[in-house]
Design a protein around this nucleic acid. Structure first.
Length: 369
DNA sequence: TAGTCGTGGTG
DNA sequence: TCACCAAGACT
């Protein structure tokens, strides 16, 4: 084991990112929210969301009591929407189960939905000064390089070893140390092109000594992403309002408002589910099939007027190719008033919690902006 | 245990 | 265009 706390803290004092919004506070709510938003998310992406979210929902009580649609709207565009749903559940648990206070032990903290070991440790260390080790992507990379660990970082045995290492290395000032190791990972010990000449740990880093900084952590080859295809329905009524459908709570884009989707070859309208990719051709038969399927399911008299160009959206584990089917609503029972189908004027739709591709589509409706 | 869950930046 | 990656957690 290589002691790194001392040079790390000294470096952090001089070069750390002390101006990050969540470093101006020791309020557990604010620290916890930052940790949730930063899960698998880079600092620059989370920043504006963090500020906006706190402005709207500044404490446990406000978040616990807010409508889910409001929470998701604030999260819209940030991704991993289960985090937003879990965050609200966690806030409700804090209010009802912990008397409005973030739990002060690791065991209790990780019972909150969306709070794992690393997130809990980060909050306890920063909010209460507890000596708790974190193990996020930054800390993991620093430990793997400094100790020249060759094993697959994702393997369970490696994880266990890294946690042991992290715990042993974390000093009494875990609050400072945790932030220091994260900043080092983000600024110096970066995934690619690590800046070893500027690193305070270079003299004791095993990977550096072996000239393998760039080769660690080892990467396991991932198979290419599968493709999924779908048609999105852009149905406008007489007043120019657009039909949106709320997605189920679980699964992709859970709880968000989306354009109704369909695939041409499945008899009924499937929703971004895992099925063999069918081409997004524009043929009379496919238009007919889409029009009938949507009309039936949504109980609307639809007339498809055009198919937009193919667009793409890449997820972590698959790639989505889709086209927008523009349609007019001639009449019929308006599938409205339901909990999952609503008509929105485009300007109002943009205030809802939308997946990024849907937001982009609706933004482009009015010709830009 | 191995998938599942978003989005934007980067080489 | 593409694969990889990010302040991970859940099922």
């Amino acid at each position: 084991m290589i002691p790194i706390a001392e040079p790390l803290l000294a470096w952090y004092t001089r070069h750390g990112r002390h101006d990050l919004p969540w470093r101006q506070t020791r309020d557990p709510y604010r620290l916890w929210l930052a940790e949730i938003m930063l899960q698998q998310t880079q600092v620059e992406s989370a920043k504006p969301y963090y500020v906006r979210f706190l402005q709207a929902l500044p404490n446990w009580q406000a978040l616990a009591a807010a409508p889910q649609d409001r929470v998701l709207a604030l999260w819209s565009g940030l991704g991993y929407y289960a985090r937003a749903r879990n965050a609200q559940r966690a806030a409700q648990t804090v209010m009802t189960g912990f008397a409005g206070h973030f739990p002060d032990t690791l065991e209790k903290a990780i019972t909150l939905p969306g709070v794992g070991r690393s997130t809990a440790a980060a909050v306890l260390a920063s909010a209460f000064g507890h000596r708790q080790a974190i193990l996020d992507a930054n800390a993991r990379r620093v430990l793997i390089r400094s100790h020249a660990i060759d094993a697959d970082p994702k393997a369970a045995a490696t994880q266990q070893w890294l946690w042991t290492l992290a715990s042993a290395l974390t000093p009494e000032d875990a609050h400072g140390y945790n932030q220091a190791i994260q900043d080092l990972g983000a600024m110096i010990c970066t995934p690619r092109q690590p800046r070893c000449p500027d690193c305070p740990l270079a003299s004791r880093c095993k990977a550096h000594a072996q000239g393998r900084s760039h080769a660690l952590p080892v990467t396991v080859h991932r198979p290419t992403k599968p493709q999924r295809r779908a048609f999105f329905l852009l149905a406008a009524d007489m007043e120019g309002r657009i039909l949106l459908e709320k997605r189920p709570d679980s699964g992709i884009w859970g709880g968000l408002w989306c354009l109704p989707q369909a695939t041409p070859d499945s008899g009924e309208l499937s929703i971004l589910c895992n099925e063999p990719p069918s081409p997004l051709e524009d043929t009379p038969a496919i238009r007919q099939s889409l029009q009938e399927a949507w009309s039936r399911r949504l109980r609307l008299d639809l007339r498809l007027t055009a198919l937009g160009e193919e667009q793409r959206h890449v997820f972590t584990h698959f790639q989505l190719r889709f086209r927008c089917a523009h349609a007019r609503v001639l009449g019929g029972a308006v599938a409205d008033s339901g909990a999952t189908l609503r008509w929105y004027r485009p300007a109002d739709a943009l205030k809802q919690g939308l997946p990024t591709p849907v937001r982009r589509i609706l933004r482009n409706l009015g010709g830009g902006r």
